[in-house]
């Protein structure tokens, strides 16, 4: 199988050099070669399991505001902050969601 490495790296926001992409591709292909066995299993009518069976339904919490963390405490961790805000570089014009 041919993986579009550039596209996957883009989705994961991992800028890899051409050399890194190449060795990464080799690694992934070796792993996928093993995993390919999954394709041979008869899974007709089998429901997927995504998590545990217990608790059967999620617990809900009270709608009752509580103080969280102080702004100072959080912004101290921030690589860049200004006027009570986090700061990031603007996106390029052709970027976007």
């Amino acid at each position: 199988m041919k993986i579009d490495m550039k596209h996957i790296a883009d989705l994961a926001k991992l800028r890899l050099s051409p050399g890194e992409l190449e060795s990464m591709e080799r690694d992934l292909e070796m792993v996928l070669a093993h995993i390919e066995r999954l394709a041979g299993i008869d899974l007709e009518g089998v429901e997927p399991t995504f998590g545990s069976r217990e608790p059967a339904g999620v617990r809900l919490q009270q709608d009752d505001p509580k103080p969280g963390l102080s702004r100072a405490c959080l912004l101290e961790l921030a690589p860049s902050a200004r006027d009570g805000h986090y700061v990031v570089p603007a996106r390029e014009s052709e970027g976007g969601r």
Binding site: L77, A78, P79, S80, P89, A90, R91, E92, G95
Partner: peptide, 13 residues
Amino acid sequence: VRYGLSTRGKALD
């Protein structure tokens, strides 16, 4: 953005 390593470039991406 909020913590840890951040290597800033000229644009967000």
